[in-house]
Amino acid sequence: MHSHGHSHANDDEKHEHPVASRKQMLWAVLLTGSFMLIEVAGGLISGSLALLADAGHMLTDTAALLLAFYAIILSSKPADNKRTFGYGRLQVLAAYTNGILLIILTGWILWESIQRFYQPNPIQSITMLVVAILGLLVNLIVFKILHSASTSNINVRSALLHVIGDLLGSVGAIIAALIIWQWGILWVDPLLSVIVSMLILRSAFHIIKDSSHILLEGKPLEMDSDQIRQDLMALQGVEDIHHIHLWSISEQEPLMTFHAVVGDAYDKDLMIDKMLDLLQKKHGVTHATIQAESENCKGVLNPVGCEEQAFGKSPN
Rank of each mutant, 00 (worst) to 15 (best):
Y96F: 15
I104L: 15
L134D: 03
L270E: 09
V196H: 00
P315R: 01
A79I: 06
V262C: 10
L51Q: 04
M271P: 05
I38G: 07
L246Q: 09
A50P: 04
C297A: 03
D264Y: 11
R22P: 02
A71D: 03
Q309G: 06
A94D: 04
I244Q: 08
A132P: 09
F258D: 01
I208Q: 01
K209W: 05
L93F: 15
W183L: 08
D12Q: 06
P303A: 10
L137P: 00
E16S: 03
V188C: 13
L59C: 11
L270C: 14
V40K: 00
M233K: 04
E293T: 14
P18L: 15
T127N: 09
H17W: 03
L37T: 12
D273N: 15
S34Y: 01
S203N: 10
I180A: 09
K219S: 08
S211K: 00
L102K: 04
I38C: 09
S113W: 03
G237K: 08
E295A: 09
Y266I: 09
G218C: 11
I174S: 05
M25H: 04
T257H: 04
D267F: 11
Q236T: 13
V40S: 06
Q91H: 11
L215H: 00
T151Y: 00
M36V: 12
W247L: 14
L216W: 00
I100G: 06
Q227M: 13
I73V: 15
W187S: 12
A28E: 07
L301G: 00
I164L: 13
K209S: 11
E307D: 10
P122D: 04
V131I: 13
K209C: 11
T60W: 07
H243L: 12
V19T: 07
H243A: 15
A260N: 05
A28F: 07
A20I: 08
S225Y: 05
W181C: 13
G299M: 01
L221T: 02
P18C: 15
I145F: 13
G135D: 03
M36L: 09
G107F: 13
L129P: 08
A173R: 03
A9F: 02
I208R: 03
F69Y: 10
E251A: 15
H287G: 13
H287V: 11
V261Y: 10
H259C: 12
D226I: 12
L101D: 04
I123L: 13
